[in-house]
Design a binder for these strands. Structure first.
Lengths: 207, 207, 207, 207
DNA sequence: GATGAATGAGTGTTCATTCAT
DNA sequence: CATGAATGAACACTCATTCAT
């Protein structure tokens, strides 16, 4: 356990197995034995790298938090409003898709584990909302977007992305999964920029 | 199990306790013993009314499904678009709030229990989406709303409502919880009807 | 678990098995499974009556303490010094013999478990010493015994009884085990009353 | 294991660490890892010098046995009875004090490990008793001491010394620990030579 | 019907021991 | 020789479920 790199590799290997088992079975039903088997090691070995089963979960939460932080570093201030929003939505959809396993792994425990809930909502959801808020409010200042209640609109947008992603993940044969990700982005941009009202002047504005 | 009414009452009594314990502890951590204690009966008695612990969960899912079905029977076809949408959103927010316990009780297991997931998404989320879809598409036909991809927009709206509700429930001191439910509805109506673009003609339309 | 008597009986049954297994194997090597087997019950049942394995040990310590307290209530103030001392020694020897199992059960843990050590020395050994001290000091006051340092003499006497008992228990074929308990008492009385010096006048005093 | 001296040093180093950890935690709770850490080596290294954990314990028993044998080689045949007895008692008290760690290290296992018990009682306690017996019986032959049952008296004396030592070690604030070792020796000499009876002629004999 | 004591399979975790480096 | 990561058997403890009362 001397070489930091080897330790990191082992941890990764174990966490990968943990993600798979947690996502499939849920945290509680997942057994350390099964995680070890999936990682191709003995159960005892896990305890050389993590204090206990729960530390696996917290490490996964940490991974998600780090990835969320990275994903937020999206550039694109020079884009027009429409493209900017599309970029953000596309990024978020991809983030959920790419971190599906992690999200599923945490999904069963977030609701009853206070520490985990605090981490997840405090360091993933709220920052995502906050970051979106920043970019968008800027456009408000420029007059490109109208003023709005960010504390309502942002969660609404993020929640929309999440549920669409969840439906596409969990019910791949539902109508929500039939469209391409890009089509979803287009439709959401339309919704969030112009709403559903029938505006005559909107015709030339869209696409 | 002779008298149907008494049996129903007992089942209710047990399910109420189960909701409380599942919501607080999550399905897996909840013990039959604790549910029995909360219901004021002996653990063994539960097994006279439910085959096993999991049947409690399925019964709760059933309850939620029934309540969702009832909640969808909202009238109001004579209202203008704006009021109609507000009514729907208000209803959904209330539904989540009033069934908070049930939703939390199911939250931990939905992600890994295929049968439960099928029930929840198939008989709660999709019907809610479908019902909304129906009402709203009608307005499209009347030309009051523009045409849109229902399979994207509806999940987006429902997901928005869910996340806003979740944030208000799980982080009561977050900004999302500061506004009244009516203010949230107003803001969502604005968002979903007109979007965020700055339309001059929108000014007099808001509030 | 309603009837106090039945609960007590079950506890006794379990503790009896625990004494046997602890005495034979030592606390650490003893397994709950084996205790359960010896008690003729399932392992899980033990946990209905004791919080954990250690509680078994503490309960045994408690039993020993209670028995030691009872054993100290020895009468006999009207006896002459010689008979009184013989009575005390005989009682103590018997106490050790009769509580052999309990003593062996505690023997392995007393040295490293602070709480247990405090209980054992504080509530068994020291009271035994203290009680002996009382009776004997009284004789000093009457001039029947010479003044002495109780804090040295009493531990010396108790330690002597303990080691003799231990040798008789653990090495039944050693010379120490060849004599009858009564002969041991006689010899100890001689030792503690008159010492080993050759006193001419002592001859007629002995036996 | 080439150089006998280096090997011996390593063994000593490991055994010293083992004494410390066994004494503090007891044999079963002590971990090989902790012993290695205390010895400043890797766990695996211990197995180059000892077959297994138990061999450490047996080696410690051996050390104690060797030290006990050395300690018995006490001269002093030219002393008067009183001084001789004082010398023996003083030696034994010192032996216990100086080998406190070893004794504590063995204390938890002696009661359940037959081989260890045989070694400890057979090669430490009984020889100590036997040696004392020899010296003292000689005095009996010379008429300086009265005849007595060595198999009772010697264990009584040794047991006394042990318990006094134990109390002084484990309860340093008890009355037994208040006196100096020399005062203890004095009091024991008085006890074992003259007993507790009030003998007029004893006055000038003591001290 | 109701009880709740009993069950025992199943889990997280520890740790003596091995062995490739 | 020395290392220390890996092993996996073993154990305390939990808890859904049963069933005699």
């Amino acid at each position: 356990m001397a070489e930091p790199q080897e330790v990191q590799d082992r941890r990764e290997q174990i966490l990968e197995a943990a993600v798979a088992v947690f996502a499939e079975r849920g945290y509680q039903r997942a057994t350390v034995k099964e995680i070890a088997a999936r990682a191709g090691i003995a159960p005892g070995t896990i305890y050389l790298y993590f204090r206990n089963k729960r530390e696996l979960l917290l490490a996964l939460a940490d991974t998600l938090i780090r990835r969320a932080a990275e994903a937020l570093l999206a550039p694109g201030d020079d884009l027009d409003v429409r493209s900017r929003l599309a970029l953000i939505l596309r990024d978020r959809l991809r983030f959920v898709r790419e971190n599906q396993g992690l999200l599923r792994a945490l999904a069963t425990e977030i609701w009853t584990d206070r520490e985990l809930a605090a981490q997840f909502f405090g360091e993933v959801i709220l920052p995502v909302i906050g970051a979106g808020s920043l970019y968008i409010q800027e456009r408000v200042a420029r007059g490109e977007l109208r003023p709005f209640q960010a504390e309502v609109v942002l969660p609404a947008v993020v929640g929309g992305i999440l549920l669409i992603s969840i439906l596409r993940m969990m019910a791949p044969d539902s109508p929500a999964a039939a469209l391409s990700e890009e089509e979803v982005v287009e439709e959401l941009v339309r919704l969030y920029l112009h709403g559903l009202c029938s505006h005559p002047e909107e015709e030339w504005d869209v696409r």
